[in-house]
Design a protein around this nucleic acid. Structure first.
Lengths: 128, 128
DNA sequence: CCGTATCCTGTGGGATACTG
DNA sequence: CAGTATCCCACAGGATACGG
């Protein structure tokens, strides 16, 4: 990741540059899942941890921190005891929801097909 | 990525499961970029390498191999000299194009906003 | 031209334990 | 409850060199 994509020699800005840049942010292992999980409304840390199956405390903390930094998620801490913290999508974050949902639907619709291809990749299902 | 997500003991298929599964396939550093690049039609290996700025030979080879295995891309080798190989999207692969393009457009439309948030994250742009 | 084979590094990310 | 701190390893992925 890191390096800002050299873009070696290309005179015009490649659309790919912006895409890569954003993909490096939200294209990690958990960001899209967290965003998708927050689509219905604010959730507490613990609720998120339970909802996003398989995520570790550490990764949830880090992912949320990044999303907050990027302005996709807002964090609200209530000064009470026991402490309560809620996370919700910002305006910007919500604009991503339709895309995430589309991706999720595509995933569910096509994963069997893909798994089938992987096992015995018969091959001829796409020839145009 | 790596570990196949144990999903230990979960009796019912979590929707998150399918999403994660597919995300692990196409959510890597290059797959979506390659798919997006192939949207207009077949391209040769070298053309792809030039079009996807920053990708290394190795990663292009690996990414294409995975995409072919998953049935998203078709590979056609012409037995001539010098050798020529063309890659193009399969039917299945093409169904992903709209999503990729949507993501790309979102990326281009919002990267400045995100970058601004990152630098001095002023904060108040999303309060619902 | 189109790959494959090695080598090597950075780092994503899990497990675990501790704090406010 | 909501994090932070450490440790540690697998593996993504770049550089380079070689084969058909």
């Amino acid at each position: 990741m890191a390096k800002v994509t050299p873009n070696s020699g290309s005179p015009r800005i490649r659309e790919g540059g912006a895409v890569r840049e954003v993909l490096d942010r939200i294209g990690d292992k958990w960001s899209l899942l967290v965003i998708g999980t927050l689509r219905a409304g604010p959730l507490r840390f613990g609720e998120l941890e339970a909802a996003v199956a398989g995520i570790s405390q550490r990764m949830l903390t880090l992912t949320l921190k990044h999303l907050v930094e990027d302005g996709l998620v807002a964090r609200t801490a209530y000064a009470e005891v026991p402490p309560r913290v809620e996370y919700e999508l910002t305006e910007l974050g919500r604009t991503l929801v339709p895309l995430v949902m589309a991706l999720a639907e595509w995933a569910m619709a096509n994963r069997e097909q893909i798994n089938a291809n992987r096992s015995g990749h018969a091959g001829g299902q796409g020839r145009p």
